[in-house]
């Protein structure tokens, strides 16, 4: 009996969580439960990131995705969760077509994943000696990469900054409260608001 590889054990735990909750997102028709299962799936994915040695990205996954994006989605769910929209049923034809396309895609992707011998097993015994990555990622975003000869990511960082500003303005513009220009007196729908 060989020793249990604990890295593999925790990988299997996180992977099982991520896959199971992703499947439950697909097979639940209740939108509130979907949001909850998506939170669990994304958190399990953060565990996978930690196990791969990406500690900073794992922490950002929890902070930005689970803490930010999901709160946004849950607010959207709460703002639109009327009785008839909480669980919308999908027709059987759509389900079978989606299952066909998804199954074919899954078969191709899984076959590709296990087709290269170098990818099948790593040297995870080194995992305990991996260094923290936050400093190197921060320097890489500012354009300084002294671990390799390649250049850093200052330009993409600036582009993403401008992109976020544009998105902020665009989202605020799209979601602003609308005021009617000319409320007509003879329309009872206008008078109510």
């Amino acid at each position: 009996m060989d020793q249990i590889n604990w890295h593999t054990f925790f990988f299997l735990l996180s992977a099982l969580g991520a896959c199971t909750f992703a499947l439950m997102v697909v097979f639940t028709s209740n939108i509130v439960r979907m949001a909850f299962f998506l939170v669990l799936s994304l958190t399990s994915t953060a565990g996978l990131f930690f196990l791969a040695g990406a500690d900073f990205v794992g922490a950002m996954q929890i902070m930005i995705y689970v803490g930010g994006t999901m709160v946004l989605l849950v607010f959207g769910v709460m703002l639109t969760a009327q009785e008839r929209f909480v669980s919308l049923k999908t027709s059987g034809g759509t389900w079978s077509l989606a299952a066909l396309a998804g199954g074919a895609l899954l078969a191709v992707l899984l076959q590709t994943a296990f087709s290269v011998d170098d990818w099948k097993a790593g040297d995870t015994a080194q995992a305990g000696q991996s260094q923290t990555t936050a400093t190197r990622i921060g320097l890489g975003l500012l354009g300084a990469r002294f671990d390799e000869g390649t250049s850093g990511y200052l330009l993409p960082f600036e582009i993403v900054s401008i992109h976020l500003l544009v998105v902020l303005i665009g989202a605020a513009y799209l979601a602003r409260a609308k005021r009617r220009a000319k409320p007509s007196a003879d329309n009872p729908a206008d008078r109510s608001d």
Partner: peptide, 16 residues
């Protein structure tokens, strides 16, 4: 459980 994981296993999770 006794084998080390590799990129393939991560890719399988990503594919799912």
């Amino acid at each position: 459980l006794t084998q080390p994981v590799g990129v393939s296993h991560y890719m399988a999770v990503g594919a799912v």
